[in-house]
Simulated scan of single mutants.
Amino acid sequence: MAIVNVSDQSFGNEVEGQGTVVVDFWAPWCGPCKMIAPILEELSAEIGDSLKIAKLNVDENPETASRFGVMSIPTLIFFKDGQPVDKVVGLNSKESLKNILAKHQ
């Protein structure tokens, strides 16, 4: 499944549905955010249809970032059937992210 960009307005429709969704809270000026982007693209390509990845720019969408207590970026929040089930702050390896996903699949 492709990586989608979400906003405060589209977050509910894109994320709070069924299945597993990883939301990447990021900003264009954030170095570690740029480093995690290719890792997320690889995960999307490897895992495919069983995972949706959404990116939310915290500068443009402060409401949703505040709602989920995002204080540092990058922050990845893992949702299962619309509910947050895990949170990772900072740059993580692909293997680390795959292990977290395996817990919630």
Rank of each mutant, 00 (worst) to 15 (best):
M1T: 11
A2Y: 07
V4Q: 00
V4M: 06
V6Y: 06
S7H: 08
D8Y: 05
Q9K: 13
S10E: 01
G12I: 01
N13F: 13
E14V: 09
V15P: 00
G17P: 00
G17V: 01
G19L: 09
T20N: 10
T20P: 07
V21R: 00
V22H: 07
D24Y: 02
D24A: 05
F25H: 02
W26C: 09
A27G: 06
P28M: 14
W29G: 11
W29K: 11
W29C: 03
G31D: 13
M35H: 08
M35F: 10
P38Q: 10
I39T: 14
I39K: 05
L40P: 00
L40S: 01
E42A: 06
E42Y: 08
L43Y: 02
L43M: 08
G48Q: 02
S50N: 09
S50M: 10
K52H: 13
K52E: 06
K52G: 09
K52R: 08
K52V: 06
I53C: 00
K55F: 00
D59N: 12
E60G: 09
E60H: 05
S66Y: 14
R67W: 15
R67N: 10
F68M: 08
G69P: 14
M71A: 12
I73L: 10
T75S: 07
T75P: 03
F78G: 05
F79V: 00
F79D: 02
F79I: 03
K80Y: 05
K80N: 13
K80R: 14
Q83M: 04
Q83F: 13
P84D: 10
D86I: 00
K87P: 04
V88M: 10
V88K: 10
V88C: 03
V89H: 09
L91V: 07
N92W: 15
S93I: 15
S93L: 12
K94M: 06
S96T: 06
N99A: 14
N99W: 04
I100D: 05
H104E: 01
H104C: 02
H104N: 03
Q105M: 15
